[in-house]
């Protein structure tokens, strides 16, 4: 790659402006020497990131519909929302993976006590009230 070809297009919105996240590419200048060049973004990469991001949103939306239809518990939606698998939530909470999968069913979720609910809520960084609703 040549220095003049280093892409500077289409950066993402950054939550913390002071940090100013930025890529850095290595490119060859006219004399054939490598230079470091900061790069704001490249559209193929950003397309891949956005595509994956939108897909997660759509998946969570589908799970939400199923929760409304009474097939899954709200826990399933919140897991999809923060993109956690049952294995990951199991590691965070100390429940087994099988237990987490069970809690994704409305019947088992309704019978959870407050201690178990707060453990789940804590791992998902939300309050118990938020955990049992799907807004």
């Amino acid at each position: 790659m040549k220095v003049k070809d280093v892409p500077q297009e289409d950066p993402f919105v950054q939550p913390d402006r002071d940090v100013s996240l930025c890529g850095r590419l290595f490119a060859v200048d006219d004399d054939g020497k490598y230079q470091e060049v900061p790069s704001k973004g490249w559209s193929p990469r950003n397309d891949a990131v956005r595509f994956a991001w939108n897909n997660w949103g759509e998946k969570a939306g589908k799970v939400r519909e199923k929760v409304l239809a009474g097939k899954y518990s709200p826990l399933a939606f919140h897991m999809a929302r923060v993109r956690m698998t049952s294995g990951m939530l199991a590691a965070y909470t100390g429940f087994s993976r099988r237990q987490i999968n069970k809690f994704c069913k409305p019947k088992n979720f309704a019978s959870l006590d407050s201690g178990a609910l707060s453990r789940l809520a804590e791992a998902l960084y939300m309050s118990v009230e938020e955990l049992i609703s799907i807004d």
């Binding site: 993402f12 950054q14 939550p15 913390d16 940090v19 991001w53």
Partner: peptide
């Protein structure tokens, strides 16, 4: 990491 863009 709170300073990363949400997509990342």
């Amino acid at each position: 990491l709170t300073y990363f863009p949400k997509e990342y």
